[in-house]
């Protein structure tokens, strides 16, 4: 962690000239430079390539041009297995529709996420569940939860292995106003608390006034 956060002059996330081609359509993306703990909202209509951008940042797909440096490591230079491992350790994902292992309980899903990367730490799971107010649902089947509850659990899942980066793709679009506020509060508070850099891509206008640092892909 020291090498991650000790060198202030280095950017945690730095993109350079990235673009991706879908047939004849070429999507170019603005440069992103973020320090540890920064929060960024990326707005864009559907088709603006915001999900593609997030997938490139998370190493799920490779851009046609440009580089992504995460803490000075070029994702494109890593092998597939190493990208998977790097992502598991350093990046937490939150999607519009959260998916879990349906046959497992809330607690078992979170334990599985820990197991895949590090060691199972039940007290950490309990602390996080307590923070989002869902400790009472710990042993419920994941399918019995509401969408808002599932989204809160997916935030915990993204944070469970203490990643340095949180990437959220339309985390609030499927939620009503109350759940939306609740989820965004939890997301911003927890990423602050755990010093994770947060990037949200969305077309949800409700989030506009909540973040000072914004990029609008429609303007680009």
């Amino acid at each position: 962690m020291d090498c991650f956060f000790g060198l202030k002059q280095k950017k945690l996330i730095q993109t350079n000239n990235i673009s991706i081609n879908y047939g004849s359509l070429i999507l170019k993306f603005p440069e992103i430079k973020l320090n540890s703990g920064d929060q960024l909202l990326i707005l864009g209509n559907s088709g603006s390539g915001k999900t593609s951008l997030l997938n490139i940042l998370g190493g799920l797909i490779s851009p046609n041009t440009g580089t992504v440096l995460l803490n000075d490591i070029n994702l494109m230079s890593l092998s597939k297995n190493k990208v998977d491992n790097f992502r598991g350790k350093n990046i937490g994902f939150i999607f519009q529709t959260p998916h879990f292992i349906k046959s497992l309980t809330v607690n078992e899903n979170l334990k599985l996420s820990q197991y895949l990367i590090s060691e199972i730490n039940q007290s950490r799971i309990n602390i996080l569940l307590e923070k989002v107010g869902l400790l009472n649902l710990k042993d419920s089947n994941i399918q019995n939860l509401s969408e808002g509850e599932k989204q809160r659990i997916s935030i915990i899942r993204a944070l469970i292995n203490q990643p340095s980066i949180l990437l959220a793709d339309e985390p609030t679009s499927a939620l009503d106003d109350e759940s939306c506020n609740n989820v965004i509060d939890i997301l911003t508070n927890l990423s602050n608390e755990y010093s994770a850099t947060l990037i949200i891509v969305t077309h949800d206008k409700r989030l506009k006034e909540k973040f000072s640092n914004q990029i609008d892909l429609n303007d680009f």
Binding site: L60, N81, D84, N85, R87, H99, I101, L116, R157
Partner: peptide
Amino acid sequence: VMMRVGGASV
């Protein structure tokens, strides 16, 4: 896919 995103290797 979620397991893969969460860092599970193939």
